[in-house]
Nucleic acid binder design. Structure first.
Lengths: 225, 225
DNA sequence: TCCTGTCATACGGTATACCAACATGAGCGG
DNA sequence: CCGCTCATGTTGGTATACCGTATGACAGGA
């Protein structure tokens, strides 16, 4: 027999990306990075030209982005980059609070040596990104840190939700990260979280995430409201 | 002056639905109701024929359903109705637990007379649906009950998430509701929830939702695992 | 000046035809 | 039993056309 049906190691689950996946990623990245500002119309035909694809592909990508909440479709006017107000942002921070504290607790309970090294590595990268001071790597390192926690906790569905929510408050997150005092307190909080998890202390991990997030939400509130 | 800029009463905000919205709703309903079984391929052209629309519309609807997680796209094979295993279902129940207990608590804290009558009305409808014994009205009444709670709490984003999660475990929910002992305990739990909220007792409301959900999850686990 | 009606333009919503690439299963030969 | 080839079904993607709505410019009339 060749091998078992599910050999996980050389399985190709994403055979070369389709055009619409690439277009989707670019559009999403463009929105998240602020290249398209909120409220801006996304007109199909110009996008076709600049991306070099047909309307079909653009439109299908738009449906996906619509479902993600990154664009809103106005009737007979087409897609517009979604905007965010404080009320909804606050709801997002609240949902994140629930999901992230829960994930941190679960992670702390089941973290083994492997997870702990991953986490320390992610934290180290995060520290380097904080020192470097550029927004983009900081974004990525922060994402990686949380991803480590969520996946180690086995909460991949919650992680999907959190990522989606984060993409909708990307501007807010960028501004929050750029806040100067955040450079110190942010990393300190992340360190607390990592330490609590490495000590398998679920309560401490949950509390650390909670304070981290409430601080972030407070800064965001000051910036937006 | 004619009238203020925003005359709310005759404003048309949903000018007649577009074809793709109608198609989207029908396909979604067809998947949730089990008309398309999980794992089943959704082949474009037959769908075009049966729905009487063009491929464009079908394909765009599929992108949306993909983003919702109701269908999965296999490369070069197109959309397939997504399936659900217990691990992911458990994650969904866990996320619902967090969001629903939180919403119930918030609702209990800020419920006024208006909300309470709405809730009692929803509960009454729910009781009638339980007595009638048909699955579909029960589904709708249950949805309405929770919607009342979430919206009264001001948690509309969480509500969107919960609805999306529920659509992904619709089969499981249907089986759970059909379980006979659920007919008694389910309504009793819902009554507890409503009473706690009407008493503005956040802790009791949270606890009631928690037990309700953990019971539901246990039944689902028995059925699926 | 302030309406109001008209018109041209821009753009989304939908349909259709067409083609290339890939998947799959049947049949064929070894 | 295995591998090869080939026909067919289906998706991925493009190009094109047409209609309806939205919008802004403009002209005439109260």
């Amino acid at each position: 027999m060749m091998s078992d049906a599910a050999t996980p190691l050389l399985r190709i689950d994403t055979p070369p990306k389709t055009l619409r996946e690439m277009v989707l990623e670019r559009l999403r990245a463009a929105i998240i990075s602020g290249h398209f500002k909120s409220g801006e119309r996304l007109i199909e035909r110009p996008l076709c030209d600049s991306l070099g694809v047909s309307r079909t592909v653009i439109r299908e990508a738009m449906r996906y982005l619509e479902a993600e909440g990154l664009v809103e479709i106005q009737s007979n006017r087409g897609p517009v980059v979604a905007s965010m107000d404080w009320d909804r942002a606050a709801q997002i921070y609240e949902i994140r609070r629930l999901l992230e504290t829960n994930a941190a607790r679960a992670c702390a309970e089941k973290a083994d040596a492997r997870v702990k090294t991953d986490l320390r590595r992610a934290l180290k990268a995060l520290g380097a990104a904080y020192d470097a001071g550029e927004t983009r790597p900081l974004f990525d390192a922060s994402t990686d840190f949380y991803q480590t926690i969520f996946l180690a906790a086995g909460h991949d569905m919650a992680w999907d939700i959190v990522q989606r929510l984060n993409s909708r408050i990307s501007r807010l997150r960028a501004m929050t990260l750029a806040t100067t005092d955040r450079h110190v307190s942010g990393f300190a909080r992340m360190t607390q979280i990592a330490e609590a998890i490495c000590a398998n202390d679920a309560d401490a991990a949950g509390r650390a995430v909670e304070t981290h997030l409430s601080e972030a939400a407070a800064i965001a509130h000051r910036l937006l409201a």
